[in-house]
Design a binder for these strands. Structure first.
Length: 913
RNA sequence: GGGCGGAUAGCUCAGUUGGGAGAGCAUUGCCCUUACAAGGCAGAGGUCGCAGGUUCAAGCCCUGUUCCGCCUACCA
């Protein structure tokens, strides 16, 4: 057994680098396809290739790593599959920004060169985050690293698209969609972030066509879209207006006349004036109303959200106004329109109004409803089974409260717009015949998808078609759009394992066990994985979805670069050690609550790592002594006690992890290691260790090594580096802690009597120390102590525990049958039926001691009074359970005894003062 | 507008079938006791947001209410 000297303070840096590399070299994280053990799979939420590790990743990855390391140690065939996401819009924006800085643009480069540029950049810096995950200790199977745009995954994407199209679940059509005028692409509904802000509600007078001196006043938040109005609506049952239905309005600022229609869905009689303009091309509600009344669409904005000259013409806007408006951004156009209306006295009032506007989730630009041809997934048939899977509990969402969120969204789900007018991503596998649709040739000049007629028939397939089924031509142009990034992410749990091929990996590791993610991508990602997984594999992609908290800064603000409140996990890792950061995040991962991360907390757990480190040093100091493994029941009292406690912690940590209560597991380990193992056990065994080669010493030494080794294994998933370093230094069997068995509780390691005995030690030692503190006797001052109890059994217990009590009480203990100790010069204290006396010697500030005793007396008196009141209550004695009554009685009895002794101590001190 | 969560010690948070209010950090006093001063020991500190209700008993259950946060939504 080698004795090894450890440094006085734990220095994580070198340790982490060494083990990190070693684990990879040994291939401990590589899962084996077809291995006999039951598999346990987690697929990583693939971080963006553009990204670097932020604190949210650190939390997310730490929790996954804990689960994976724990299951691996339990003997499961554990696979944690890593990878990255191409993150269409986000990545394209990053590279475009680079180009911009070089005075270049993607349009100048052209599509192919631009995509090549993105790939180059991806190869160069795309794996930054992978390296950072390794630093964190993430035990991913790096040999299976995937990327959403690698060949295998791209094949899966095409396969899914083609099959959905065959099933009639993908269609192309012209719809009003959310459009980002900066990214120049369509967005899905959930890619729009809504923001509350103070806006204005404009009241505008529309003259009736047959009576220009009579006006119908409407209310709107977007006066500039008036130019695109194609009707005005009132409520059909509104007596103020319903006689106007069927008549016409002269649309201000234009030479057009538009109808007045009745619409009970669109119009809320209580709101505004009860009359509303209908602009089908610029508002989702109006679009639907337009369909109900067969109104034309009149788009007055171009794809950059500027006033479109062609639109102005079609809208028959007054020529003088046209010149002012052409190509103006929508905001400025509003000002002009308002001025024009005011000039004609058509704008009687402007009210303040709370409203929500939508912003692009990638670039925060205000999105516009925009009419354009797009690809959609018909979602209802996919959503129904996905709803059922969660309702039946086939998929569990943890914490369960989020299930309602999921179900609510799924039940109201709308078709998913999956086409994006960007270049970086999976190109839509649809082609158009250049003979049938000659205009599509312009696509190659970069004109984009708007060139393709909305009702053109695409040929969808896994590869480019050879001949057109209509005209037998063989020349095609592929649809220029790419798929929403989340389309490929939705396939992640099975595409990464080889689907659509029936690979051994797919058979071994699918369905996966647990998905660990944040709430922010429940709809973007989780819901869609469930739908796609059920549709294409017939199985739910995972059993459990664990949703963890969002990490905020110490003030509770969302961390963001612009706010400058980002806590960089890598900095903290090098400052305090990776294990300290991991443990901090783990301990704060309580369900349903955001994490406000503070530096002090990390520092506190850094101290914890050091505490464990020093316990290891202490243990290694004793590594040369002889050991003897005795059967549990023959071991010394304290050994039996600590093993009983250890057994309990093993059980509770396992249970906590089963229930995804990472916070509980962390606090159970923290409390046990620090406050039971170090504070009491290591202190209590010192006499036995120092006594040299005695039977007790040999057994204790054995228990010490054994329990500490188990503790390292128990802690390993939470603190992988520290535990490996210590485990390698202490007596152990095996080559690495990573692949050792996770501790399980043992039936025979339970001794309630040892726990009782320890409880006596704890009580007596604590009261002795309290006495010392009262008298201000420092721990190094040896004292004469007395001990007795009313019950003779308790007295004999004191006798058996005398060595422990002397060790921690730091004095010579005289146990007597009764309190026949000197009346003066002994301070008497009572606890749990025991009376403890401390001999008063030397100069002591008795007044101070007296004050503090009085304070204690007061507190106890208060409690006693309350208990007396309760026991005197007739209702209580009649209705409370016998156990509760008994407990109260015992507690009061003990309090009374303590109080009487305290008062005699008080009198005694009074005499001495 | 709807839904959800939170409000407990100076700060950050636990508190799982309703019965003596807890932890970490910070703080006070004593102590470098031979693993650890990034430590040890002993303390101080709370009308559990507010108001009602159920109960012998409420941080916990019910009703209402205030403030904060999140999700969601087509009041133009």
């Amino acid at each position: 057994m080698p004795s090894r000297q450890l440094e006085k303070i734990y220095e994580p840096q070198a340790v982490e680098a060494r083990w990190s590399q070693h684990w990879l070299d040994q291939g401990y994280f590589t899962a084996k396809s077809g291995a006999p053990a039951e598999s346990y799979t987690i697929v990583i939420p693939p971080p963006n290739v553009t990204g670097s590790l932020h604190i949210g990743h650190a939390l997310n990855s730490t929790l996954q790593d804990i689960l994976i390391r724990w299951r691996r140690m339990q003997g499961r065939n554990a696979l944690w599959l890593p990878g990255t996401d191409h993150a269409g819009i986000a990545t394209q924006n990053v590279v475009e920004r680079q180009l911009h800085e070089e005075g270049n643009s993607r349009e100048q480069l052209g599509r192919d060169a631009f995509i090549e540029r993105v790939w180059t950049w991806k190869e160069q810096s795309g794996n930054t985050i992978i390296g950072q995950l390794k630093h964190l200790g993430a035990s991913c199977d790096w040999s299976r690293l995937r990327f959403t745009m690698d060949d295998g995954l791209s094949k899966a994407v095409r396969e899914v698209f083609v099959r959905l199209h065959q099933d009639g679940l993908i269609y192309r059509g012209e719809r009003l969609i959310n459009w980002c005028p900066r990214c120049l692409t369509a967005l899905s509904d959930i890619e729009v972030e809504h923001e509350q802000l103070k806006g204005k509600l404009y009241h505008i007078r529309y003259p009736l066509a047959d009576d220009p001196n009579t006006f119908l006043t409407i209310a709107t938040t977007r006066p500039e879209t008036l130019l695109g109005d194609t009707a005005v609506a009132v409520h059909p049952e509104d007596p103020r207006y319903n006689q106007l239905i069927g008549k016409s309005i002269r649309l201000p600022l234009t030479s057009r006349t538009i109808p007045i229609v009745g619409d009970a869905i669109l119009v809320d009689r209580e709101f505004g004036t009860g009359a509303v303009k209908i602009t089908p091309a610029h508002d989702f509600n109006d679009f639907e109303a337009g369909q109900r009344h067969q109104l034309p669409h009149l788009s007055i904005l171009n794809y950059r959200a500027q006033i479109d000259p062609e639109g102005l013409e079609k809208a028959e806007v007054e020529p003088s106004l046209r010149a002012q408006l052409v190509e103006l951004p929508v905001g400025k156009a509003r000002t002009i329109v308002i001025e024009a209306l005011q000039a004609q006295e058509l704008l009687p009032s402007i009210d303040d109004h709370q409203m929500a506007i939508g912003k692009c989730y990638r670039c925060k630009t205000v999105v516009e409803p925009f009419l354009s041809p797009q690809w959609f997934v018909k979602i209802q048939p996919l959503a129904d089974p996905a709803i059922k899977a969660v309702e039946t509990g086939e998929i569990r969402i943890i914490p369960e409260a989020w299930s309602n969120n999921y179900l609510g969204w799924m039940r109201g789900i709308k078709d998913w717009c999956i086409s994006r007018q960007i270049w970086w991503g999976h190109r839509i596998p649809a082609w158009y015949c250049t003979t049938c649709y000659p205009e599509v040739k312009q696509v190659e000049q970069g004109a984009g998808s708007s060139i393709i007629p909305p009702n053109a028939t695409p040929i969808v397939g896994r590869t480019e078609p050879s001949t057109c089924p209509t005209c037998h031509n063989a020349e095609f142009i592929q649809d220029p759009d790419v798929l929403d990034t989340w389309f490929s992410s939705a396939l992640w749990p099975f595409s990464t394992l080889g689907w659509p091929d029936e690979t051994p990996d797919l058979k071994t590791f699918y369905p996966t066990a647990t998905l660990v993610t944040g709430l922010d991508i429940l709809f973007f990602w989780v819901a869609r994985m469930i739908m796609m997984g059920l549709k294409f594999t017939g199985k739910p992609p995972f059993r459990d979805v664990y949703i963890h908290a969002l990490v905020r800064d110490a003030e509770g603000q969302k961390m963001s670069k612009s706010k400058g409140n980002v806590i960089d996990p890598l900095t903290k890792m090098s400052q305090y050690g990776t294990d300290a950061l991991r443990f901090t995040l783990t301990s704060m991962a309580s369900p349903g609550r955001d994490i406000k991360l503070s530096e002090e907390r990390i520092e506190g757990y850094r101290n914890f790592t050091n505490k464990i480190w020093n316990a290891a040093r202490f243990i290694l100091m004793n590594a040369d002594g002889k050991t003897e493994a005795l059967p549990f029941h023959d071991r010394p009292l304290i050994d039996r006690w600590i093993l009983t406690r250890l057994n309990y912690v093993i059980e509770s940590v396992n249970t906590s992890l089963e229930n995804y209560r990472f916070d509980q597991a962390a606090s159970q380990l923290y409390h046990f290691i620090w406050h039971e193992y170090c504070d009491w056990y290591l202190e209590l065994i010192k006499p036995a260790l120092l006594a040299g080669d005695t039977p007790e010493g040999r057994s204790t030494r054995h228990t010490l090594f054994e329990s500490f080794e188990i503790l390292q294994r128990l802690l390993h998933p939470l603190m992988p580096f520290l535990t490996e370093e210590i485990w390698q230094a202490i007596p152990h069997e095996g080559e690495s802690i990573v692949i050792q068995a996770y501790p399980t509780s043992q039936k025979d390691w339970v001794d309630p009597k040892a726990e009782e005995a320890f409880h006596i030690i704890e009580q007596v030692v604590t009261i002795t120390r309290t006495g010392r503190a009262l008298l201000e006797y420092g721990p190094s001052k040896k004292l004469t102590l007395y001990g007795t109890a009313k019950d003779p059994n308790q007295v004999s217990q004191l006798h058996t525990l005398i060595t422990y009590l002397e060790q921690l009480g730091r004095g010579e203990l005289r146990v007597t049958e009764q309190d026949d100790w000197p009346t003066d010069h002994v301070l008497r204290l009572i606890v749990g039926g025991f009376t403890i006396g401390i001999h008063i010697e030397g100069e002591v500030d008795l007044k101070k001691a007296l004050d503090r005793i009085r304070k204690q007396t007061q507190a106890k008196q208060k409690e006693a009074t309350r208990l007396q009141g309760r026991l005197a209550s007739v209702d209580f004695t009649a209705k409370a359970s016998p156990d509760v009554i008994q407990e109260s009685k015992e507690r009061l009895e003990a309090l009374t005894a303590e109080l009487s002794l305290l008062s005699s101590s008080e009198q005694q001190l009074q005499r001495m003062v």
